[in-house]
Simulated assay, not measured.
Amino acid sequence: MFSETKTNDLQVPQCPNSITSVEFSPTENILSASSWDNETRIWSLNSNGTVTPKAQVKVAAPVLDHCWSSDGSRLFSACTDKNVYQWSPSAPTPSIIAQHAEPVKCVEFAENLLCTGSWDETVKFWDLKTPQPKLTLQMPERVYCMNLIYPVLIVGLAQRKVLTYDLRNASKPFKNQESPLKMQTRCIAIFPDQSGFCIGSIEGRVGVQHFAGDDKKNFAFKCHRRKDDVYSVNAISFHRTHGTFSTAGADGNFTFWDKNAKQRLKQFPQVNQSIIATAFNKDCNLFAYAASYDWSQGQSGYNSQRSSQIYVHVVADSDVRPRKAGF
């Protein structure tokens, strides 16, 4: 399916194998990535256009997700050993900060609260001062994906369930719905203005949903398809200034979209593996994407000769600026 990589984007050195997530520090141009080989690594993106490895930690189990604290001083790695580890780039020695009864699939941080979602069908909140969670929310299914822009938390679950919470009153969801898509949820992202969300699935479609107002504004569209081949939508990331967004898929492509005009802004060259994860930096002028095996075909589909890669794309404003409908 895949050809040789065609991208001219900056390639990050010394990547881990089988990447699970990528993130930028909220305070500076430092990039991080987690992986199935038990690692979380970080790199400095320098003003001269180079990338320098900065630190890394290795824990006891695969890391399914990670995030930064709001001040960029700490990272949190969510693992299959049911633990979440805390560590600092300046002192990369991990310590357990949170625990679940099953593997921890998702981790988010906002307003001095660590939020963790697990296959044990719970979402927990931690204030980092005590070993017990500040609040535990019982979910109807396993947590598959999650996004938090305070005060809105959205959780994508197994069986296509989607729960949305206002964390100022988190005792029950303010919206409990099924995904508008027909198949398993893969990724979810809140609009920057918190008025709705985008959801992606394994069927190569994205749903655009609003929390309130006219349902006619909600729609779904096909993407990451090639003739009769259908590929999973693995990642959705929003440009926080323009409100446009990216999708990335198992076809090895990423694309920028304008949801309001219902149009594609720009599609980029294919890379030679599935794109697993994406992230904009704090200024939204850099876009990181990770090319790695997605394990959709199990062990039989794994090729040890094909290494994982992370690329950084310099974002042109013309690539992400909204356009008038009908362009």
Rank of each mutant, 00 (worst) to 15 (best):
R240P: 03
V155L: 02
W257T: 00
K58H: 12
I97P: 08
V57D: 06
S201D: 04
S18K: 11
C15W: 00
D120A: 07
T52N: 12
P94Q: 05
V230T: 15
F191P: 05
N281W: 04
V233F: 01
L163A: 07
S237N: 05
F219R: 09
R226F: 12
H242I: 02
K82D: 10
I30K: 15
P133D: 06
L181S: 00
R225H: 14
S274M: 07
M1Q: 13
M139A: 01
Q299N: 12
N29M: 10
F280H: 06
Q299S: 14
N176I: 11
V312D: 06
S318G: 08
A98P: 04
A33S: 06
Y231Q: 02
C67Q: 06
H210C: 14
A33T: 04
N303H: 11
Q209R: 11
F221Q: 02
F221S: 03
Y231L: 02
D37P: 08
C145W: 05
D193N: 15
I149L: 09
Q273N: 08
K129Y: 08
A189Q: 07
D71C: 06
Q273L: 10
T5I: 04
A101M: 12
D228I: 09
G243P: 01
S73M: 10
D317R: 01
Q177D: 11
Q297Y: 15
P53D: 10
V314C: 09
L137W: 00
N260R: 12
S77P: 04
K227V: 13
N303F: 07
S307K: 15
F327T: 14
L31Y: 06
E121C: 13
L114M: 07
L135M: 12
D166C: 04
Q297N: 15
